[in-house]
């Protein structure tokens, strides 16, 4: 059950090594024509062969590892600066986590109603499904304008957009989890004349926790994308999404790649947190 440190990191390092083995030649192949042309034009570059220059282009097709590293460092210090990754990632994380909490609350209510009432299931479930087919990029600006009319501004509208796309997996996952106890377990509660409330508290809800956490992991990824799309498609003053749209406008290739890496890292981090909470909340699982 417990992995040794090496066993845990070994496979990860192997994958990283393989990725590098593919990535480096790819950098050379992708940038070579541009490097050759740039050199031929007589631009000043800190290199003298086209091959070496594939790693030093101002606007490369595919940024080299040294350029990514430089970009990360440039965008990380000081961490509290308005252009810095840590500050902006922090706001995106806040929006995602608040969005997830909102989604979990709404998802739980919907799931309980879905389990309790067949009528609710028949009348509301199709609308819940329909809500998810509306493209979030179309919806986000409208939602922000609408919320702005009622004074809801800043990071909160993004959290609400995150919640909007995160509540669906949570609703479906929880509804499945609440229905997961088998016939016999329900019969057993019946022999003790347990109330519906007791059946929820002592049987359905504990049984649904593993389902909830599976759904939460899916939702975390969805909520993060929701928050970023929310930031990109509306007026924003902070967030990875804001940085992404600024970079796209400036066509800063290295910066865009650094931001994509930052988004991925934030996603991994948030899901790791969910995983940790899962371990704490469901200690009975092997």
């Amino acid at each position: 059950m417990r992995h040794s440190r090496l066993a845990a990191w070994g496979p990860l390092l192997v994958v990283a090594a393989v990725a590098m083995a593919i990535y480096l030649p790819l950098v050379v192949v992708a940038n070579y024509p541009l490097a050759a042309r740039t050199l031929a034009r007589g631009a000043t570059l800190p290199c003298d062969s086209a091959l070496a220059c594939t790693f030093f282009l101002r606007n490369p097709v595919l940024p080299a590892p040294n350029q990514l590293l430089g970009g990360i460092l440039a965008l990380s210090w000081p961490p509290g600066a308005p252009y810095a990754l840590p500050l902006n990632a922090w706001w995106t994380a806040i929006e995602t986590v608040v969005g997830l909490s909102l989604a979990a609350t709404v998802g739980f209510l919907f799931a309980v109603l879905l389990v309790l009432s067949r009528a609710f299931q028949l009348s509301v479930l199709p609308w819940i499904v329909a809500s998810q087919t509306v493209p979030i990029v179309a919806l986000a600006p409208m939602l922000v304008v609408l919320l702005g009319r009622y004074g809801v501004q800043g990071w909160l509208p993004k959290a609400i957009i995150a919640a909007y796309i995160a509540f669906f997996p949570i609703t479906i996952g929880l509804a499945k989890g609440l229905q997961s106890p088998d016939r016999l377990a329900l019969d057993l509660m019946k022999t003790w004349n347990a109330t519906t409330f007791q059946v929820f508290m002592r049987l359905r809800i504990p049984a649904s926790l593993p389902f909830l956490f599976t759904a939460l992991k899916v939702s975390t990824a969805a909520a993060l994308i929701g928050a970023i799309v929310g930031e990109m498609s509306t007026i924003s003053f902070a967030g990875l999404g804001k940085m992404l749209s600024e970079n796209a406008r400036a066509s800063d290739v290295v910066g865009t790649w650094v931001l994509m890496l930052a988004c991925a890292l934030l996603g991994i981090l948030l899901i790791a947190v969910v995983d940790l909470v899962e371990r704490l909340v469901t200690p009975w699982r092997r």
Binding site: L184, A185, L188, P206, A207, W284
Partner: peptide
């Protein structure tokens, strides 16, 4: 019951 039907958690 014929099966133990214990709560896993």
């Amino acid at each position: 019951f014929q099966a133990p039907t214990l709560m896993d958690w």
